[in-house]
Design a protein around this nucleic acid. Structure first.
Lengths: 201, 201
DNA sequence: AACCCTATTGCGCAGATGTCCAATAGGCAT
DNA sequence: ATGCCTATTGGACATCTGCGCAATAGGGTT
């Protein structure tokens, strides 16, 4: 197996274990077992577990980001794009959000992971800000502080998703989805229902 | 030392270690060392670490809740109470929020902790809902779904606090505070600035 | 065929962790 | 003074952890 392929396989195995056991529950031996190789090999390719976790996490998170960007194809208006943004976010499974929870919690103890988590969160906010900026520019949205509102919407999404994942059925996934869309509508001066599920339209 | 005092001392020591190392970083031996006793003693009083962490966490979280309720003394109007709510929430130090982050993340792996975390979160939401319910009743706030808006405001607070604690200076504590108040004003149909820091008034 | 390079192994190290248990000690009732 | 009860000790146990290292094997080059 070529070094590049091996490297990729290790990260892929790490992702699989992460999805199953969470970031905090991912060990070098687990990754090796998932891959069917020895644990020494993992360290031959990765300086430390911290780095490896950070790389795997970055890949997962970046794929989600890419999925949103790809879903923008053919949707040019700001409101349509924001709707797509929510659609993709809502499809995110429990595993994905648990991984984010772990990342935020582990950030205090894993420097590499913190850097990645931070950067990715900023990219999500920037993506949101670009949509809202477009909406404000073409007059379809009303907002006097794009940065603040972007962070608010993102935090709202994270905070609601957190309740769903960490606490089970305190609130349902459907409520979290509907409530976050309603919150964004209010923030951006949109009529109620303007951001309802794009697929249902 | 009487059993009751000992029990209380163990929980207090657990809280101290939790504040220093986070929930995930709290071990039985650390607690014993903090207390200056043996590790065996901890298990003589507590069935498992999971239970102990849950009990200590509950105490911390419940104190915060009590602090808000106490701060309500002498404040009878809904808007004033909501302002106080934000004041207390904002004073919450980094350690406190890191503990919540750990709790949400660890909930997937520690059943006792999950139960407590869930119940406490519901109490926070209920407290918020009671304030908003009062505001709607006396006409000072506008809101057509008290439950949804309560969860939104709470999630907004948690989501913003999360950024501050997990990622350092992505956003400042001041921004998180100001933005969450502004978000709540918008949600409840209040004029901008209506929820500004109570102490500054 | 000889050689080398490196991917890969397998194990060891040192430390940590939750849990449990036999032994002790110290106070209280008799 | 005797006996009992339990709080408390200190360490054993089994397991897990990240990491490093000497040995090996297998493929590619000369």
């Amino acid at each position: 197996m070529s070094p590049d392929d091996r490297r990729a396989a290790i990260v892929a195995a790490t992702r699989a274990v992460m999805a199953r056991n969470g970031i905090a529950g991912t060990t070098v031996r687990d990754v090796a077992a998932e891959l069917g190789t020895s644990s020494g090999l993992i360290h031959h390719y990765s300086a430390s577990l911290d780095e490896l976790l950070a790389e795997a996490f970055e890949q997962v998170a970046r794929e989600d980001l890419e999925r949103v960007r790809r879903a923008f194809a053919g949707v040019d208006d700001a409101i349509g794009r924001l709707r797509v943004f929510f659609d993709v976010y809502a499809r995110d499974d429990d595993q994905g959000i648990q991984t984010w929870l772990d990342a935020w919690s582990e950030a205090a103890r894993r420097p590499a992971l913190q850097r990645i988590s931070r950067r990715l969160n900023e990219e999500w906010q920037a993506l949101l800000a670009s949509i809202i900026g477009q909406g404000v520019a073409d007059g379809s949205m009303v907002c006097d502080d794009v940065d603040a509102v972007s962070w608010r919407i993102l935090s709202l999404l994270d905070g609601l998703a957190l309740q769903v994942v960490a606490h089970g059925d305190v609130i349902s996934l459907g409520e979290a989805d509907a409530w976050s869309r309603a919150g964004a509508e209010r923030e951006l001066g949109l009529p109620s229902g303007a951001l309802s599920l794009a697929l249902a339209r």
